[in-house]
Write a protein that binds this DNA or RNA. Structure first.
Length: 484
RNA sequence: GGGCCCUUCGUCUAUCGGUUAGGACAUCAGAUUUUCAAUCUGGGAAGACGGGUUCGACUCCCGUAGGGCCUACCA
């Protein structure tokens, strides 16, 4: 159970220019993890708000007291924070506003827009079955009954929707969508325990929060019709709707655990950078010509709700990896070192300052090829090994009498290098091979083995530089004496 | 069952009646080569199907098929 934190948005001047500044919101329910689709919806709301110079709000939809938990609220807050999508005001907790919701229902009852329904759970279930069989919406017998006198037992409050006519949802991504009012049922506004339901609470909160543009998943498209009716009954201006297609797994089915990841926290653990997620997610369902890799500033500048795609998209790990690799190359090396350190800790290691120093030295030589932070930390593993390294058999095999003397000469050549950095080291290696009349491959493989102990490593000059002069020569010396 | 939404290369997408249907990821071939990767060059790859409308349809309309959402005192 979460303890609601009351928040009055009147305290926060959200609309500096009250005229018609854009207000968007993300409204997740804290009932588990934060789905990647929710993250994308948040991203689009954020991009749109930023593009329009409006505000982006967060509302926690915790009216389901059974399923809402405080831990899930934290997951949402952490997820948005990690993604860098910071709301412009403290979160609104929906449950804390239930008094206001009841007040709205009260108003609606006075206007004749709602009524008490005394159907029992069994009666409702039976009516639902009948309605389904007859291919019509569920109807309550209490709709047109005179206000019942006496005690008829527990009741819900239902919306009295129009039986005729039609409701247009002029969706900005789906286009105009027409609903026949007779197909819409009288939804429950207040449960028999007096708590408000979702469809009522969204409308009241969105109105009170001044939300001008509702951008959400298209699983809410038909709800938009019901909600429009409530706005009208309340005499409130209906916001603009934009319903985003959903994100599916690589196989086109609803994205779930079995597709590798589903929650934003999992993507973080898998080693994806938040800026890569923003870029990739932006391209899922939205595009700006042929642009694939772009900054937040560009996305904000370019974002237009009219360019949002109508059809659902599938999560593509290959492309995500590609985008992530791009941002790893761009990332600051100190930051990457810290992130790689975290990845190491998650694997159970307990790296120290010396490890961080070695990591940082190696990162410039591996950041070009790492697709994720996990890979990045794997690729730097060779640098973290402590002397003496265990040699692979194929390495020691190359160190027979002849091999040892070859590498002793190589050590001399390396010592002559004017500077311990990639270019001089590479030319030292090349001219040594030429002087010996052998190919680089002849010395490359064993040398790599001596330096990395068999772990993946960058190119030779890079590996030597990453390790530094002392460590490199030390590892070679270890190997030579070991092979003796 | 009813209502609604969706359908361009394997994937993400461009096209907004007239294009050799473009790009990106993936894939294949080649180059490079000191493992793996990265990188470079090149290739293959698409309008679900059937009807219309039109001089001309990926683009507009209708139907079919296939996905999806809603149809809760969940959100």
């Amino acid at each position: 159970m979460i303890s609601p934190v009351p928040f009055a948005f009147r305290d926060f001047p959200l609309m500096p220019s009250p005229a018609r500044s854009v207000v968007t919101r993300i409204a997740p329910s804290p009932t588990g993890s934060m789905h990647i689709g929710t993250a994308r919806t948040a991203l689009f709301n954020w991009l749109y708000a930023r593009h329009c110079g409006g505000s982006f709000l967060l509302r926690i939809e915790d009216t389901d007291r059974e399923r809402s938990t405080e831990a899930s609220v934290k997951v949402i807050l952490d997820g948005l924070n990690w993604l860098g999508l910071h709301p412009d005001a403290p979160p609104v907790y929906q449950f804390a506003r239930s008094g206001r919701h009841r007040e709205a229902v009260e108003t609606l009852m006075h206007k004749g827009g709602a009524y008490r329904c005394y159907m029992t759970a069994e009666e409702t279930a039976a009516e639902r079955e009948r309605a389904r069989a007859e291919g019509r919406a569920i109807r309550s017998p209490w709709r047109d009954r005179d206000p019942p006198g006496g005690d008829n037992g527990p009741f819900t409050v239902r919306f009295r929707g129009p039986l005729e006519g039609e409701t247009l949802v002029d969706d900005r991504v789906k286009g105009p969508v027409l609903f026949q009012n007779r197909d819409l049922d009288d939804l429950v506004l207040l449960r028999s325990d007096g708590t408000p339901t979702y469809n009522l609470a969204v409308v009241v909160d969105d109105h009170d929060m001044g939300v001008t543009d509702i951008i959400r998943g298209d699983d809410h498209l038909s709800n938009a019709a019901r909600q429009s009716l409530i706005y009208q009954a309340m005499g409130w201006e209906t916001p603009l709707f934009a319903h985003l297609p959903m994100i599916h797994g690589p196989d086109g089915a609803k994205l779930s655990k079995r597709h590798g990841a589903q929650a934003v926290g999992e993507f973080a653990d898998l080693g994806y950078l938040p800026e890569a997620m923003r870029n990739y997610l932006a391209r899922l369902g939205w595009g700006h010509g042929d642009d694939e890799l772009f900054s937040d500033a560009q996305a904000i500048q370019w974002f237009d709700i009219r360019d949002v795609v109508r059809s659902p998209a599938r999560l593509d790990w290959n492309k995500l990896n590609h985008v992530n690799a791009h941002y790893i190359r761009l990332a600051d090396e100190e930051r990457l070192a810290d992130l790689a350190l975290e990845a190491l800790k998650k694997k159970g290691a307990s790296p120290d300052q010396e490890d961080r120093r070695r990591l940082l030295a190696a990162i410039p030589f591996v950041k070009e090829s790492a697709k994720t932070l996990v890979e990045l930390s794997d690729l730097t593993g060779f640098a973290l090994l402590r002397r003496p390294l265990a040699l692979e058999s194929k390495t020691s095999a190359a160190l027979d009498v002849e091999g040892r003397s070859l590498f002793e000469r190589l050590v001399q050549a390396l010592r002559q290098a004017p500077d311990w950095s990639p270019d001089p080291l590479l030319s030292a290696l090349r001219s040594f091979a030429a002087a010996e009349g052998i190919g680089l491959g002849k010395i490359g493989a064993p040398l790599r083995g001596m330096l990395s102990g068999g772990l993946p490593a960058p190119d030779l000059a890079g590996a030597l530089t990453a390790l530094g002069r002392e460590e490199s020569l030390g590892r070679i010396a270890d190997a030579l004496s070991q092979a003796r």
